[in-house]
């Protein structure tokens, strides 16, 4: 499962950034595909980006003086969430893969999965930086700034800022205090990802916060069969997102990596798209009650 997942993650990363010419020329793709959003976090200013980042697109529309809500981007994100839930985080998000690669760097790893209250950070980021600031804090021209992209997003700095600033002398000259801050913030997040598994997903990612709402009702779900579960706790011990899949198989924190499915000695856990799900039980809460 893990190997298959890694292959899919790489395919998703390459598909998201298929405009290879952009890397060679230090320019962004300007075709019409950019009007469509990909499901994962992938900055549209990355020279290779073939489509748009949903968070960037959402802030672009919310910050436009003509709009206060983006039906288009929210509708797309709802559609993605309803089909996949946070399977997107585990399989399709390019920055999710990057975080897992950072975590492979040899170092002392943090015990546990991090303080639970800190996980509210991603909901705060979604509410404040992605929605409130672009909508309510507008400049003289009525344009709101994309605060998440501007002050937080490490994907923008790592995959777009650094390559473009390296390639274009004019951007190098323009880079100042904000660029230095963003590089520092991205470095800090990357360093945190080295010691804490998917630090950004757990504590900061607004996209994960949004898709987490859909884990319970998405077509892709997990379940636990109380008759087969031997309550050994292997699933919760192996989960690096701090979830107990036997109690909360559809937790908003679960990124559907599948580690628990492999660890379960009795095949009590099942996962899959509705109607084709194998193993587990139809009732998601069965293990907890059993």
């Amino acid at each position: 499962m893990a190997d298959r997942r890694r292959v899919i993650q790489w395919i998703a990363l390459i598909a998201n950034n298929a405009y290879l010419k952009g890397f060679a020329e230090g320019r962004v793709y300007r075709g019409s595909l950019k009007s469509i959003c990909v499901p994962g976090l992938n900055c549209y200013s990355c020279p290779g980006a073939a489509a748009s980042c949903p968070l960037g697109a959402l802030q672009a529309v919310l910050g436009d003086y003509r709009y206060k809500f983006s039906f288009y981007v929210v509708g797309l994100m709802m559609g993605f969430g309803l089909v996949f839930g946070r399977l997107i985080c585990g399989f399709l998000c390019p920055f999710g893969l990057m975080q897992e690669l950072f975590y492979k760097i040899p170092s002392r790893k943090a015990a546990g999965s991090g303080a639970r209250w800190l996980r509210w950070g991603k909901y705060v980021t979604l509410a404040v930086f992605v929605i409130a600031i672009p909508v309510f804090f507008r400049g003289d021209l009525g344009i709101g700034e994309p605060a998440f992209c501007k002050y937080i997003c490490p994907a923008g700095t790592i995959t777009a800022g650094l390559p473009l600033v390296a390639a274009q002398p004019s951007l190098r000259e323009a880079a100042g205090g904000l660029f230095a801050f963003k590089v520092f913030a991205a470095a800090a997040i990357a360093a945190a990802c080295v010691v804490i598994y998917r630090f950004f997903c757990k504590f900061l990612c607004p996209l994960g916060a949004f898709y987490g709402f859909f884990n319970r009702i998405a077509l892709y779900r997990m379940s636990c069969d109380g008759n087969s579960c031997v309550r050994c706790g292997a699933c919760s011990r192996v989960c690096r997102m701090g979830v107990d899949p036997s109690r909360e198989p559809d937790s908003a924190e679960c990124i559907r990596c599948g580690d628990c499915l492999k660890a379960c000695p009795s095949s009590a856990l099942g996962a899959g798209f509705e109607f084709v799900r194998k193993g587990g039980a139809k009732d998601a809460g069965e293990c907890a009650r059993g």
């Binding site: 962004v28 793709y29 300007r30 075709g31 019409s32 950019k34 009007s35 959003c37 900055c43 549209y44 200013s45 980006a49 489509a51 748009s52 960037g56 697109a57 672009a60 529309v61 436009d64 003509r66 709009y67 983006s70 039906f71 288009y72 981007v73 929210v74 509708g75 797309l76 709802m78 559609g79 700034e145 994309p146 992209c149 501007k150 997003c153 923008g156 700095t157 777009a160 800022g161 473009l164 600033v165 951007l171 323009a174 880079a175 100042g176 904000l178 660029f179 801050f181 963003k182 590089v183």
Partner: peptide, 28 residues
């Protein structure tokens, strides 16, 4: 939502933003 967004021109807003280098995104 998607149909409503497309009909009021949100796709072109996204496209316009995405085909130029987003200076905020890269920290400029």
């Amino acid at each position: 939502f998607v149909a409503a967004g497309v009909s009021r021109g949100e796709m072109s807003t996204v496209l316009r933003k995405a085909v130029t280098v987003c200076l905020e995104c890269i920290g400029i």
